[in-house]
Amino acid sequence: MAKPFNDAERDAVYRAIYERRDMRHFVSDPVDPAVLERLLDAGHHAPSVGYMQPWRIARITDPALRRAVHATVESERVATADALGERRDAFMKLKVEGMLECAELLVMALMDGRERHIFGRRTLPEMDLASVACAIQNMWLAARAEGLGMGWVSLFDVERVRQLLQMPNGARPVAILCLGHVDEFYREPMLETERWAKRMPLAECVFENRWPAGEAKKLAD
């Protein structure tokens, strides 16, 4: 039987999980290149369906390109606020990104030619996206262990970012990651602090054998 990590090693893994935060506030000090390499390598060692490794990572180092990518995020931020109706003003008060302050800006993308990969995707083609999400989570946890903050930005015009990064046909961006030093990590998820949402109880998310009766109705209500 395989041996578990020792107590200190195990506790460190769980600490990274529970203390990881979606960060929005950064200081501009540069990230050590060796640390950045470790984080990228952590992402590249994520599991992927059929071992297709669909992630592609664009490091944005051109200030003008960073501003252009930020502009599409800002445009989508306003459009999202308009779509939220009565919660518009509350949303506009939230800080949803730190793209102009963070030391590193990374765009996580799905590769082109993914249709050639059938293993694990014949009935669930979205598993390529799930694989990229695993890579992002690896980087996020590693960043927390390194004392760096990371924030996932999902408010952007996909086609516009594709054009800005000159992606080939079939490839598409799925996340913009802000990475850098922070003064401190949030005590709890920022959206809980801002009372936008709260974490659901685990018992409401775990079922045994079959979907519980009445769950669909409760969600609809």
Results as ranks from 00 to 15, higher is better:
Ser48Arg: 07
Ser48Pro: 08
Gly50Gln: 03
Met52Pro: 00
Trp55Ala: 14
Arg56Val: 13
Ala58Gly: 02
Ile60Asn: 07
Thr61Leu: 10
Thr61Gln: 09
Pro63Ile: 11
Pro63Val: 08
Leu65His: 05
Leu65Glu: 05
Arg67Asp: 13
Ala68Val: 01
Val69Ala: 08
Ala71His: 11
Ala71Tyr: 09
Thr72Lys: 13
Ser75Val: 04
Ser75Glu: 14
Ser75Pro: 00
Val78Lys: 04
Ala79Ile: 09
Thr80Gly: 00
Ala83Pro: 12
Ala83Gly: 14
Leu84Ile: 15
Gly85Ala: 07
Gly85Asp: 13
Glu86Val: 15
Arg87Asn: 13
Met92Tyr: 05
Leu94Met: 15
Lys95Ser: 06
Val96Tyr: 02
Met99His: 11
Met99Ser: 09
Leu100Phe: 05
Leu100Ile: 01
Leu100Asp: 13
Glu101Trp: 01
Ala103Val: 04
Glu104Phe: 03
Leu106Met: 07
Leu106Glu: 03
Met108Thr: 00
Ala109Glu: 11
Ala109Met: 15
Asp112Asn: 11
Asp112Leu: 06
Gly113Glu: 11
Glu115Gly: 02
Arg116Glu: 14
Arg116Gln: 14
His117Pro: 00
Phe119Asp: 12
Arg121Glu: 03
Arg121Ala: 12
Arg122Tyr: 07
Leu124His: 13
Leu124Cys: 02
Leu124Thr: 10
Pro125Gln: 08
Pro125Cys: 08
Met127Leu: 06
Asp128Ile: 01
Leu129Tyr: 10
Ser131His: 04
Val132Tyr: 03
Ala133Glu: 10
Cys134Ser: 14
Ala135Phe: 02
Ile136Val: 15
Gln137Tyr: 05
Gln137Val: 13
Asn138Cys: 07
Met139Leu: 15
Trp140Leu: 13
Trp140Val: 04
Trp140His: 09
Trp140Gly: 00
Ala142Tyr: 04
Ala143Arg: 02
Arg144Asp: 03
Ala145His: 10
Glu146Thr: 06
Leu148His: 04
Gly149Met: 06
Met150Trp: 07
Trp152Asp: 03
Asp157Arg: 10
Val158Cys: 14
Arg160Tyr: 08
Arg160Phe: 02
Val161Gln: 08
Arg162Thr: 06
Leu165Gly: 10
Gln166Ala: 14
Met167Ser: 06
Gly170Cys: 05
Gly170Asp: 08
